[in-house]
Structure formats: C-alpha cells, structure tokens
Design a protein around this nucleic acid. Structure first.
Length: 502
RNA sequence: GACCCGGUAGCUCAACUGGCAGAGUACCGGCCUUUUAAGCCGGGUGUUCUGGGUUCGACUCCCAGCCGGGUCACCA
C-alpha cells in the first residue's frame, strides 16, 4: 500500500478510531430488502401517502457523494441497480450513529434502514433510521465532476472505471445481454452449447501462432487454443448435429484496436447445412441480437449509420476488388495482374505469395474499410482455407464467406471439408509449409482425421468475433473498451510500494 | 518491431521564448438540520514517469529508458 499518500493515511486514521469505538468496519453480511434502482423506478411519481405506505426499506451501497449540513447530511448511495439519496439526521439516528456517519467517506459502503420521503426539491430520499458501516474505503475516488478519463488507469484499474463512469458498467451489461441473446437464439434452434478444451496438445482450427504452456504431472507441452473448430467438428461426427461454443481463443500476435491476445469467439456448427444456409442464419441472428439489445436494427458506429436489416449484399472477393477496389476485371483474373496491382497499392508483396494470398491482401488493402453496411464476401481462395470444402464447379474457390461490418471482419464461415482423403492431403500440404518455416500453417492432427474417417455429415460452421460485435453495438472504437481487463504490460511500481505488493 | 503523440497533486487540467509548480475538485480544521457540482471561513497535501546531460537556473532543451494511446508492420 502507498503509505506515503496523505489520503490513505487520513482514512487509516478514521479506521483505527472506528475500531477503537467498537465498530467493525468490515462486517460480514447485511440483509437488504430493496435495491436503489427499483425504488427510484417504482416510486418515481408516488405521493407522500404512497411513500408512507411503502414501509421501511433496507439497502446497501457505496457512498458516491456527501453533503454535510452540521447535524444533518445528505448522501447518495449506489448499488448495482442505480443510486438513491439518503438523509441522515442526528435527532433521528442518535448521536453515536451520527458521530459514526461523520467519519464516513465518499467510497465507503453503507447499509441503511429508513423510510421513503420526498425532499423539497422533489427527490426520492431515504430518511435513515439505522445505519451500518459495511466496508471502509481507503482510497479516494476520482473527481466527482470530471470523472476518470486516463485511459491507462481505466484499463488497469477497471474497478475504478466501473465506479466512476456509469456508461462503462452499462456497456458491460450490454455485452452480457448480447451473449445471452445469442444463446437464446441458438438454444431455440436446437443447438447444444458445449465446452471443448482450451488446452490443446496440437493447436489447430486457424492460422495463428499459439501460446505455449506446460502440464507438470504429464510433462506435456500444451497450447492455448487458437480456435475450437476441430473439436466442435468432432462433436458433429459424434452425432451432436448442432453445437455452439462461446469462449476464449488465444492468439500470440500483436495488439491493436481490433486484436486482444485473448478474445471471445462464438463458433457454431450445423449438420445438413452449407455456407449459403449460414448466410441466411446470420441474417436472422444478428438483426435479432441488434434489435433486442439496441432497440432498433439500425445503429450508429463512430458517426456512421449501419443497418442490419436483411438481406445483405453478397460480393465475391473478385467482384469486390473490381466494384470497390478500383481494379479492372482482367487484373484480378491472373496472378501476375494481382501482383502488379498489389505492388501499385503499396502492399508489401512477398515473392512467395501465390494467387490466393495476393487476392486476399489486395482485398484488405483496397476494399475492407469500405464495407460499412453488413456485407457477405464470398469465394475465398481454397488454398487459404484448408478446412473448407472447395466449390464443386471451380475448386480454386472455397465454399466460404466472411461478414464485414464497419470495415471489421465480424464473421467467417464455410462448408466444412468432410472428405477425409482430401482433408489429409490439405493438412499434409500445411504441415509441409509449416516444416518449411511457415509458423501459421496448420499442424497435422491425426485424431481429427480419424474422426473425419468415421464420417462427418455435410456440415457448415461459422465463427463470430463477440468482442468486435460488441464494439459495434456499443459504439466502441477499441476492443479494449469492451474487454473488462484487456492485456497490458505489467505495471511498474515505485520502490517504496513494492514491499507490500504481492 | 518502426514511427507519431502523451505522462505535472487522489482525479480533471494550467504553467509564455528556460526564471519562485498552480487552479477546480477531492482532502484536513471550523460553522451549518431539506441539500444535490450545498454554502461560508482557513489550509497546498507534489519523486512534474525514471535516469543521465546542457545551463547561473529545467515541468520546459538534449540523450537513454519505462508505461500508455494511435498509425503501420505482424496478424483474422
């Protein structure tokens, strides 16, 4: 603890005084009968008679503000549901309780019992009859007027951010609402929610670098999962024909406003469906979530109106490059044309890149940010989609789409490759690339292949980045704003504070 | 990893071209029984991110580092 801080010293002094007076500053429980938000909602317009009939109320909360008037005081208490004003008079609570109240600071938790009334200015208020200190706070809260705006402190000490900035708590409620609504959607359609391993002996299901960890008893290297895909498909092999999972993936990559090393992903798999079916399903899912959570299917993201009303445009990668990327049709048809266009667009082209990689890189450079309204982009190169089924009419392309909203990739889906022979060839090619130094190429996974050999029905699967979806629905410019505790470098603390620092 | 921007009181921010580090709020003491950014009187509580350097003198200029933000790179 930062003992040099005068604010903390002051509060420690009060804490000792309270203990000396026989007051437990950290009691264990406090049975409440009411919540602040319920009271202010239910009695918003109630008259005095109705308030008197309401009877006594008991609630707990954090002291957010204090206005002392000598032998009487006003304060606001905040609980999870909202805040409510309390009025403490010495002639009502008694001298010793009032003496205790005088040593209460902004930030302390207080339990009160009393009766509702309305002040001269019309605010619903609790006339306190009994008060109990529930927890003493030792650190001062941020400025009551300007709040907390230091981004670093907001991320590092999210607990302070949550106290000081009500919109932050609201944002995380909305995040929970989004996830609850997604569960409702899939549960209603016969999908089973499953939990597959987050520690994988063989990382797989995506092109990404994993985090490595180690199990001591088994003396086994393990990887934090980069995707649940391969296990979810194993579930479908086993007859769980509709499954979904909402949980964390971990990718050992750089950080940005769109990437946190651990992020929450929804993945779902539906047997007897293909990627076209999933486009239709996605056009149901997202509008339902957006309408329920935001109250409308149109949202504003960073100043731009975005409508989730279906249907959404569908563009192949090549069409997108021509229509939006300003390329000529003949340029996108050949590898040489793509390479020239990519170089002209300032892409750092590597000589090893083939047709497919050039196509996707050009798309990212010239088109991605223009896809503001929800747009399905289809016809990804099969060579970059080793787990997806190729199109039967042109095997250069995968049966795959990505969904873009506000320039963000929000979803990625494909018809699953279920031919074990073809999957083996693809994984062998990946393993070869990996051996040649491509750290993001897929690993060989014999058990996954064995599962496919038992037979995977025709299946389509999709992943939706929950953090990015929540960014859109909360108008947040950075993924860190929608993750309670985003990854930061460890805090370096001053030498005088390190000895108590666990 | 590269580049740009930032770091001053618990919080929000000032401090001219290098010249005594300052406001609001919070906090402390006093007064105050319907206030609500309560009010009135008094009080500045600081490793100016860290470490060097230049200078008579550094919050300010230079170098190195730390942390954060952004852009790019990497990457879905």
């Amino acid at each position: 603890m930062d003992e040099a801080n005068a604010f903390i010293r002051e509060r420690l002094k009060k804490l000792e005084e309270l203990s000396r007076d026989g007051i437990d500053p950290y009691p264990s429980t406090f049975p409440i009968t009411h919540l602040a938000g319920d009271l202010t909602g239910r009695y918003a317009t109630a008259d005095e008679a109705a308030l008197a009939a309401a009877g006594p109320v008991t609630l707990g909360g954090r002291v957010l503000s204090l206005r002392g008037h000598g032998k009487a005081s006003f304060a606001h208490l905040k609980d999870q549901t909202g805040k409510i004003q309390i009025y403490v008079r010495q002639d009502v609570v008694g001298e010793s309780a009032y003496h205790l109240f005088r040593r209460v600071d902004v930030g302390d938790f207080l339990g009160v019992q009393g009766r509702l009334f309305r002040t001269k200015t019309g605010e619903l208020t609790i006339q306190v009859e009994h008060l109990t200190l529930l927890a003493k706070s030792l650190r001062p809260l941020p400025d009551k007027w300007h709040g907390l705006s230091d981004v670093e402190v907001r991320y590092r000490q999210r607990y302070v951010d949550l106290i000081a900035n009500p919109t932050v708590a609201e944002l995380f409620r909305r995040r929970a609402h989004v996830i609850a609504e997604i569960r409702r959607f899939f549960d209603a359609r016969g999908f089973l929610e499953v939990e597959t391993p987050m520690m994988h002996p063989i990382p797989g299901g995506a092109a990404a670098r994993p985090f490595v960890t180690h199990h001591n008893a088994l003396d086994l290297s393990l990887y934090l999962r980069i995707a649940p895909e391969l296990h979810l498909k194993r579930c479908v092999v086993g007859g769980l024909e509709r499954v979904y999972e909402i949980n964390r993936n971990f990718r050992n990559e750089g950080l940005s406003t769109q990437h946190n090393p651990e992020f929450t992903m929804l993945e779902f798999y539906q047997a007897y469906a293909d990627y076209q079916d999933l486009m239709a399903l996605t056009e149901e899912l997202l509008p339902q979530v957006v309408r329920t959570v935001c109250g409308s299917d149109t949202i504003t993201y960073q100043g731009r109106q975005i409508s989730f009303a279906p249907p959404w445009p569908r563009l192949s990668l090549e069409e997108a490059l021509v229509k939006l990327g300003g390329l000529r049709p003949q340029e996108v048809r050949t590898e040489a044309g793509l390479r020239t266009a990519a170089e002209a667009s300032g892409v750092a082209v590597k000589p090893t890149w083939g047709w497919g990689k050039l196509l996707v890189e050009l798309f990212e450079a010239r088109v991605e940010e223009q896809l503001v309204q929800p747009t399905f982009v289809t016809d990804f190169p099969a060579e970059l989609s080793p787990l997806a089924k190729a199109r039967t009419d042109d095997p250069r392309y995968a049966q795959r789409f990505e969904l873009y909203v506000a320039g963000l990739e929000v979803a990625n889906a494909y018809t699953e490759l279920n031919d074990p022979r073809e999957q083996r060839r693809r994984l062998e090619a990946q393993a070869k690339a990996r051996a040649a130094g491509d750290e993001e190429a897929h690993c060989m996974d014999e058990d996954f292949l064995r599962a496919l050999e038992y037979g995977l029905p025709p299946t389509a699967g999709e992943g939706i980045g929950i953090d990015r979806l929540v960014m859109l629905l909360t108008d947040s410019p950075s993924i860190r704003d929608v993750i309670l505790f985003p990854l930061l470098r460890p805090e370096v603390r001053g030498p005088e504070t390190t000895d108590n620092d666990q």
